[in-house]
Design a protein around this nucleic acid. Sequence first.
RNA 1: GCGGGCAUAACUCAGCUGGUAGAGUGUCAGCUUCCCAAGCUGAAUGUCGCGGGUUCGAAUCCCGUUGCCCGCUCCA
Length: 496
Amino acid sequence: MKTEKNDVLEKVVSLAKRKGFVFQSSEVYGGLNGCWDYGPLGVELLKNIKEEWWKFFTYRDDIEGLDASILMHPRVWEASGHVENFTDPMIDCKQCKARFRIDHLADNINAKKKGKLIEFVAALPEAAEFHEEANQILDSKDESLYSDFITKIFESKDASTPTLAEVTCPQCGTKGSFTSARKFNLMFKTFVGPVEEDSNVVYLRPETAQGIFVNFLNVQNSSRQKLPFGIAQIGKAFRNEINTKYFLFRTREFEQMEMQFFCHPDADKKWYDYWKAERLEWYKSLGMNGERLRYHDHPKDKLAHYAKEATDIEYQFPFGWGEMEGIHNRTNFDLGRHEEYSGKSFKYFDEETKEKFIPFIIETSAGASRSFMAFLIDSYNEEEVNGEVRTVLKLHPKLAPIKAAILPLVNKDGMPEFARKIEADLRRNYKVFYDDKGAVGRRYRRQDEAGTPFCITIDTQSMEDGTVTIRERDSMEQIRIEASKIGVYLFEKIYA
RNA sequence: GCGGGCAUAACUCAGCUGGUAGAGUGUCAGCUUCCCAAGCUGAAUGUCGCGGGUUCGAAUCCCGUUGCCCGCUCCA
């Protein structure tokens, strides 16, 4: 099992490198953990995925597009909860999986226990530097000092682990079940202006959603939309993940395709169900194997702070099921918080019902990079043809990086000239590739590996009657049509 | 973050117990080729991931480091 699953991922990674889909970032310097570059074919595939996504949403009359900046006002992330949740040291209980902010943990310990804990620290070899302070606090008998001191110990380098081992989990009561403390600085920090000081700190956005939320009324007013309506955005987001993993699956820099749908609080369930169904169909409509797709509904007690209901659309990767897209009922949490933090109103006024309220938001948040990897893996096929292995990417024609290859059967008798004319004609509308190197069979296989759905071949008969053959990638079957009709043929095959 | 494995040409890999690198595929040039990785001729490409150490001498042994993969952990 293990070798088999490694196999597929390794083969795809190898193909990705060889054919120019994905390279490791800064490869010549040894690579940068969790960062990848998209090569000539990869950037086309990614662009096509994004384009299909963009059309799916913004070609509707109830969804508008947006492209917000990556750097945003730091207060945005205070309102969203990201600063609070990600910059303080946290620990987890291994037993019950509960997570605690360390500065809150001390408050959950009763006074008597705190005293004992400080006595423990006073005798702890790893806490030598704190012994004096511990004894002073014990002597003072001032219990109001206890919490701050314990927090200090918890946050210290050497003394925290042995001290935490003496503490019981406030939730499940297990003793010594805590992980060591760590800071969840999930947001990348940088500075605006030349001076690196705290007042100039800004963050690279850890999600694109907030750019949509803060622009909700701008978009609504300028586009004259009425509820319910949505705002779609594609863009990079950054998270300083502790672990990167599985090729493109968990990276520090990634691209999100998000649509936030604003609706009346009473209509949330309806739209949640609607988008949940629509989004799964989208992957299938682009050729993804339905048996490798499923929903993973989040149990109510595991929901994020902002969500009322949530599900993931998961793909069965070689390493297991993994999330490609999240669909969340974010309620009025985000807009409410921005109203609170900015002092500006985020309420919507409904002329018909004369109702004024903060809309609910149904979010569909897809990972472009994860979808990219899923489409790549899903389309990867090895077939036996005449005793040889044929590697072929059966990508949907809409997603294929190159739509057609133009191949003169031999390099003489006017075939190259005719082929070049066809190429020039098709290039006006399609990404095509001209190849006259080597035997035609080899050229077909090269295109199979790149996922090119159609190969147009010019032969002797072409020179006589102006027809060409079109070879279809998956069936390897050929038809013959007039050269003048290639454009129409491709359009129907790709987009119809 | 912890533990394990790996790192040699664009890709897949060989290189045994130390004597300054090789195969297949691919790529490029030419010939030949009328339809599925055909054939012939020729060519290019590696400070053996990076940095130290041991040694007369290191791809090979040792240490460190970075990256990738696997298992935990984590993934509001």
